[in-house]
Design a protein around this nucleic acid. Structure first.
Length: 476
RNA sequence: GUCCCCAUCGUCUAGCCGGCCUAGGACACCACCCUUUCAAGGUGGCGACACGGGUUCGAAUCCCGUUGGGGACGCCA
């Protein structure tokens, strides 16, 4: 027997940038599709025209592509052309007519004022706020007449009022909701446009989506969408609900606060492999601690194994994956981050090889390059104390040795320096490293000396000697 | 407020149809090794079954309650 092909989707609204939470949802859907050699669809839910941001469409695609999530249907991917809800208005109105004809939906003339008062009253009396079915019993003929006369109305889906609605959640298992707990939801707004609940379910069914992984905030929509689709005689996809991502404080990740926006992370210098590996493991047990490719992650992706409690987005863990990604990065992928002219001709490969293990972000290359190859001063004022401790003679002596030795082979150079300065180990290395690079840490010092042009070394040592001589009395 | 879901180291988690768990891994942190420096790298350490009741010969694993966290209750998506 045939297992139906898996088709998943990611359906963001173009109202802002993607953040880590959205992206993880997209990733899990992509993983599920790829795992089963199925299809992944990108659909844009722009049914709320007031909130649409024209630039968001491109940004969403850019973010997805950056992470390597490709889609088989959607913007730029060919058929179907109508991946955009705003171009599917007639699909929704046709379905709405069918629902009305079957008495599965009814017009509701209740004003916003009445609804607000109703909710307030229910809340005060300890009742959950939900639509009371005020218009549910209206005569269809009269309702049609009122609508024809131009009286504003929304369309509500008639929910069963007894029994339970059962479904199997891909991540949470069997679910059962008492039908009476659900009010009749609005599926068409007064202006005739489709509400999320309606457009979303219809699109999934019509596009042949088989599996939907979405945020936990959609859990309560599931029974409604199931009723809706059944009434329409359409296939109901399998839904799985993901626990939401929270920030370091445990508060929900907020688009508004710009928490962990994908664009922000990218601009900060994070590599896509790093984010991918981190996101894939948030709330999802991946037994392998190494950096994996997307396809490898997909190979054993299982929604049922997903965590059902909210996961924290932790910068420390992201940084770990970033470090692994940097270390594993092909040298060629680092080059573009290096500003032209920073590194002398012919020295690039040596420079990159030396510095790469110390990088967290590729942009740091430029700082290292400046310290190695730029004549400008690198010694910060606050580091004067260690230089003074070493004394001007130390730097002059080192400079002298460097001048007269033609070998910069560290094995030979180090003993010469020790003999000449009378210092060894850290006593020699630390002030020397500081004088040469302005930093207390970095790649192997011998290799740095080897890579650094003689005239830069000379200038740095001179400067260090001057600083060391300047304040014989350290501020104390 | 009402309803639903969840609860293992600081964080992400393994384990959860009970004994193999003196609870395993990764991140972070700390120490040591390497480097006669530091960083990087290597090795090790610290560190948790939220609490209270049951059930059982035996519970992280099952049940109930408490507490805590998350979600839903829109002409938002």
């Amino acid at each position: 027997m045939d297992i139906p092909p898996v088709k998943t989707r990611f359906a963001p609204s173009p109202t802002g940038r993607l953040h880590a939470g959205n992206m993880r949802t997209a990733l899990f859907n992509w993983l599920l599709a790829r795992r089963h050699a199925g299809a992944f669809v990108l659909r844009i839910e722009d049914s709320d025209t007031r909130r649409n941001d024209p630039s968001a469409l491109d940004a969403i695609q850019a973010d997805l592509q950056w992470l390597g999530l490709d889609w088989d249907e959607g913007p730029g991917a060919g058929a179907p052309a109508d991946w955009q809800q705003s171009s599917r208005a007639s699909v929704y109105s046709d379905a709405a007519e069918r629902l009305i004809a079957a008495d599965a939906a009814y017009p509701c003339f209740c004003s916003a004022t009445r609804l607000a008062a109703l909710r307030e009253r229910q809340r005060r009396s300890g009742q959950p706020p939900r639509y009371d079915g005020h218009c549910a019993g209206l005569d269809p003929v009269q309702s049609a007449a009122r609508r024809a006369a131009g009286e504003p109305a929304v369309l509500r889906l008639r929910m069963p009022d007894a029994g339970t609605i059962d479904f199997h959640d891909l991540v949470r298992g069997p679910q059962s909701v008492r039908a009476g707990e659900l009010g009749d939801p609005v599926i068409l707004r007064a202006d005739g446009s489709a509400a999320f609940l309606f457009a979303n379910a219809l699109d999934d069914a019509l596009m042949g989506i088989t599996h939907v992984l979405r945020g936990e905030d959609h859990l309560s929509n599931t029974p409604r969408q199931q009723v809706l689709l059944r009434r329409l005689g359409l296939p109901v996809p399998a839904y799985g609900h993901l626990a939401l991502l929270v920030d370091t404080e445990g508060a929900p990740l907020s688009k508004r606060r710009g928490d962990a926006s994908i664009a922000g992370l990218r601009d900060a210098g994070y590599r896509p492999e790093a984010l991918l590996n981190y996101l894939a493991r948030l709330g999802n047990p991946v037994p392998d601690d190494r950096l994996r490719a997307a396809a490898e992650l997909a190979a054993d992706f299982d929604p049922a194994a997903l965590s059902r409690s909210p996961a924290r987005f932790d910068d420390h863990q992201l940084d770990h994956w970033q470090s692994l990604a940097m270390a594993a990065a092909p040298m060629e992928s680092l080059r573009p981050a290096l500003e032209p002219g920073r590194v002398p001709m012919g020295r690039e490969a040596d420079f990159l090889a030396l510095v790469q293990p110390n990088l967290r972000f590729a942009a740091e290359l430029n700082d290292w390059a400046r310290r190695f190859f730029d004549a400008a001063d690198v010694v910060p004022g606050e580091s004067a104390a260690p230089l003074r401790e070493a004394g001007p003679a130390f730097f002059e002596t080192v400079a002298g040795v460097l001048e007269t030795t033609d070998s910069v082979d560290w094995q030979q150079l180090r003993p010469s320096l020790e003999a000449a300065t009378g210092r060894r180990g850290g006593a020699m290395m630390k002030p020397l490293r500081l004088a040469l690079t302005g930093l207390g840490q970095g790649p192997a010092l011998g290799a740095i000396i080897d890579l650094m042009p003689a005239e830069i070394r000379r200038a740095r040592l001179q400067k260090a000697a001057a600083v060391a001589a300047s304040g014989v009395e350290p501020d104390a």
